[in-house]
Amino acid sequence: MGQQLFDMRTLSAPKIVRLEGRAFSNLFPGHLGGVKITRQFCSCRGIFLKASYSTTRTSSQAINSVRQDKLAVVNGSSQILGAIEASSILFSRETSVLDAFEDEYEGIVVNSERLPSNPHTFASILQSSLSRWKREGKKGVWLKIPLEQSELVPIAVKQGFQYHHAEREYIMLTYWIPGGPDLLPANASHQVGVGGFAINDKNEVLVVQEKHCAPAYVGSWKLPTGFILESEEIFTGVVREVKEETGIDTEFLEVIAFRHAHNVAFRKSDLFFICMLRPLSTEIKVDDLEIQAAKWMPLSEFLEQPVIREDNMFKKMIDICIARLGKHYCGLAAHQVVSKFDGKSSSLYYNVVEATDFNCLGG
């Protein structure tokens, strides 16, 4: 018993250290039982070992430091001084927090790529995370759950999360921590469509017949239309749609007019922009998936269609396009501007009439 049971080398080699019948696993160099070990000498004979655990910001886990435990080895005997409180155990509910970061509105955005794969673990850590964020005075929590982990959705809902929106790859849920009305922004309220009015030097309009349409419009010729994609500009979206449906390359000139309707698809509102385009090619190549036919049609013939003459909205839109051709109407061109509010470049649509380079006569 008078012989010292271990020395400094025992802390750097994986082995089992036995102290008075107790076995301690030295799992990693410098660690005892998974707890970081630091050495400290004192006036007494022996070595005091400090056990502590903390996390870094990179994992976004703010875990309380474990109170110091001292394992004393004096004169060949060992003593465990102090006790680690239950509230500071590594895997306790109070110390495990989801990996996340703070947004600019004092909210929390959970890292969807590091969600626990086990549903029971997720439920426990989610509960402790909400407790921590409430104590810290956070506001909204954004939780994006990937499709492959959809079994976590009902767990989050049971703990008070609400559906916000869904995409093909994920579902977004939110949790409003403060009392009172939920101030988190709602899901997108609009869909955005575009239509391209392209007319060539022969006064012919580029028109299409769609394969799938309402019975009342079967056989009718219409302008190429479609929806813009996420993060796509209006002026690039309309050029892309015309190219995909007809194979014709065009150049965006102006937004001529737009329509605003409500309760269209999935109870969402709809913005539809009519854009003036300049054709850059002539050969038509039809998209067989969506388009039945496409052609260059004389403007006068296009206007004589019942779907144009009998519909006030369509007729008005075409009248505006014709007025623009005669320079009796001003459209809105796209201008790139940067706002100090967010520091981002965006497209501002407006009309500029200058004496040296005007694009319409006004009136």
Rank of each mutant, 00 (worst) to 15 (best):
G343V: 09
P181H: 01
F314P: 00
R39T: 15
V205M: 05
G196P: 09
F341H: 00
K134Y: 14
S77A: 10
V255W: 00
F358S: 13
G219D: 10
V208F: 04
G160V: 09
V74F: 14
E148S: 12
F252I: 02
E290F: 15
Q79N: 06
H262D: 14
L332I: 02
N359V: 14
A333V: 10
H260M: 10
D7G: 13
Q127T: 15
D7F: 10
A62C: 12
K15E: 15
Q292Y: 09
R240P: 11
Y105H: 00
D249N: 11
E304D: 14
S87F: 09
Q191P: 02
Q40D: 13
S77Y: 06
E301D: 15
F235K: 07
G179P: 03
C213D: 08
T56A: 10
G196C: 07
K285D: 13
N200V: 12
Q162W: 01
E94G: 05
S60Y: 13
E241Y: 09
C213H: 11
F302N: 02
L299D: 08
G363Y: 11
Y349L: 05
T356E: 12
Q162R: 06
R309D: 07
Q292W: 03
A323P: 08
T174G: 04
D319T: 13
M8F: 13
F197I: 10
A86C: 04
Y105L: 06
C213F: 06
L49Q: 10
R22C: 12
E151C: 08
S88M: 07
E233L: 07
E244C: 02
G362S: 05
T246Y: 04
S12R: 03
R240K: 09
F258V: 01
V264D: 05
P215M: 03
N351A: 06
S347R: 02
Q191A: 11
